[in-house]
Amino acid sequence: MAAIPRLTSRLRIAVTAPATVWLRGAAQSHTWNRLSGGGDRPRHLDLATLARLRLIPLVGFVVAALAVPVTASATTIYAASSLSKVVPSIAPGNTYSFAGSDTLAFQIENGAPADVFLSAAPLYAERLHSKGLCSTPVVFALNTLTFVTPASNPAGITRVQQLDRPGGYRLAVGGKHVPLGIYTRTLLGKLGLGRALTKNTVSSYQKASDVTSVIALGSADAGVVYTTDWYANTTKLLAIPVPASAQPLIRYEACVVMRPGSDTTAANAVIARLSSLAGRQALFNAHFGLPPKT
């Protein structure tokens, strides 16, 4: 509490002095003593202490600071967490919010102040579009899945088909309603391993990055992550080959959020940057796939 008087020392002269006098006056008032039990009995609220701490001006200051309207100058970009490294390098100087695409779509539907939405799956961008909450989505990047184990591969998994043994492994995968989980189920289905998720002990995560962490930390024997996430953790994760024919089509879509006061010009510029030569080069360097040039 000692920090509080120091913090407000400049305000103290102007504001606190009268407030302190006022509080002390109140503390000594007969009425208050009677209300708070009076006499020598301990009071529930010691006003003299309160005044000494200069809490009143501090509260006033906080309220004043909160009342100043926040002016958003930069464009606010809501992007899938798998884009957290690459997109800020393409469009620097903006405000970013990274999370699962489903969470971001949910926030935008509830009025979040986003200008651009970058979704890891067409589902969410198109859902917002159909509700009139964002412009026609455009594909700006592609991705694939990688089957991974911890670098030391404690369970000794060399082929994906080993997952078909009953009760065999601890797997970490995306939840069945988030993009990574939907893609993972498509991949396993195409590999004829549709029942792998019932035969093994499966932990589901809503965030792609949680799947990566849990496998890297050795809680899971194996799991399925975005290829770009594997590239970011090659020292901790071992990739097990998956036939290319089983890969689901993973498209990242961008759209301009339509809400009162959104900066659509700046938002369009961000999306144009993602599709520009420089943007495509950065995405390529980060191991994303690229859609055909438009």
Binding site: T103, F106, S203, Q206, D210, V214
Partner: peptide, 22 residues
């Protein structure tokens, strides 16, 4: 992160809330 979210085994009520959000 520590126990994972395994249905009927480690999926507690708060984890179920998060999974149901989607």
């Amino acid at each position: 992160l520590f126990a994972g979210s395994v249905a009927r085994l480690t999926e507690t009520l708060p984890l179920a809330v998060y999974a149901q959000l989607d």
